[in-house]
């Protein structure tokens, strides 16, 4: 275990292209342990591709990804999840045909032996206790027996966070957690993230809601055209003219940015 890097998570010179378009162009980013880090940038700047590269969903053509000093480049999504990197999605992935409580048990499956899984009950009593605790934390406990498909959009985001949390990841990657969520829930979500952070969890958050990102994060990275071009404290990012340029420089004005 050679320490290639001192950062908690580090991406070095990642490159990935689709046809002629470089979704990641020599992209590098460092995440410090115990911090909430933000990742912003206009649509198509490569934020989600970077998430996919870190979580092993997409392979990168060049560059490396390190987690706690070890290379995780080329590992599969389940291996990376097992290492303690949990992730939520822009388009929420919940298991709609299963109940909220059953959703909580999915991420606890990975350590189970081959044929034992056929006879062992779905959740052990410790897992059940933990699931109840986490559902209480995100406020979904009263809906535990409802099918997940019946939840509202915001509740689905909370459930996705909850079922990732049961696996106790040390690093959480959240892809637009506040997108399409109503204001009171956004505030609640922010409180949840701060609380989890106080327990020692590290966050990397992609978000379009600038207020949310700039008030929540300790550090913010700004992406444009496939690479991170600046990293700084929220107040630095807020006042940097290059950031506004990055958003205004693109042709696509459908961007739903909320400039504070």
């Amino acid at each position: 275990m050679t320490a290639e890097t001192d950062a908690f998570l580090e991406v070095k010179n990642a490159t990935r292209s689709y046809g002629g378009v470089k979704a990641l162009d020599n992209c590098s980013i460092k995440i410090s342990e115990g911090k909430i880090t933000g990742l912003i940038g206009p649509n198509g700047s490569g934020k989600t591709t970077l998430f996919n590269a870190i979580t092993g969903y997409e392979s990168i053509e060049g560059g490396d990804v390190y987690f706690r000093g070890q290379s995780i480049t080329g590992k599969t999504p389940e291996q990376i999840f097992a290492l303690g990197i949990g992730r939520t999605f822009q388009l929420t992935k919940i298991f709609a045909r299963m109940t909220v409580m059953e959703n909580m048990f999915i991420a606890t499956q990975r350590k189970e032996g081959w044929l034992r899984s056929v006879i062992r009950p779905a959740g052990s009593s410790e897992e059940l206790d933990r699931a109840v605790e986490i559902l209480k934390f995100v406020g979904l406990l009263k809906l535990a027996e409802s099918p997940a498909g019946s939840l509202s959009y915001g509740q689905r985001k909370l459930l996705e966070l909850a079922y990732i949390l049961i696996a106790d990841p040390t690093l959480l990657l959240l892809d637009e957690p506040a997108g399409g969520v109503n204001l009171s829930l956004i505030k609640e979500l922010g409180d949840h993230i701060r609380y989890l952070n106080s327990l020692g969890k590290t966050f990397l958050i992609v978000e379009h809601n600038m207020d949310f990102v700039l008030t929540l994060c300790h550090e913010v990275n700004v992406m444009s055209s496939g690479s991170v071009f600046m990293t700084g404290k929220p107040e630095q990012v807020r006042s940097d003219p290059r950031v506004l340029d990055a958003y205004l420089g693109i042709d696509d004005f459908e961007e739903e940015i909320v400039v504070p």
Binding site: E78, Q109, A122
Partner: peptide, 28 residues
């Protein structure tokens, strides 16, 4: 019983519901 009460059942139904997402949270 296997589908609704056991660990394998949770994995199977999760894979039926959303194979990709199931894989991401460690369902083999």
């Amino acid at each position: 019983f296997i589908l609704y009460k056991t660990r394998l059942g949770v994995s199977v139904r999760a894979a039926m519901d959303n194979r990709f997402a199931a894989q991401l949270v460690g369902v083999e």
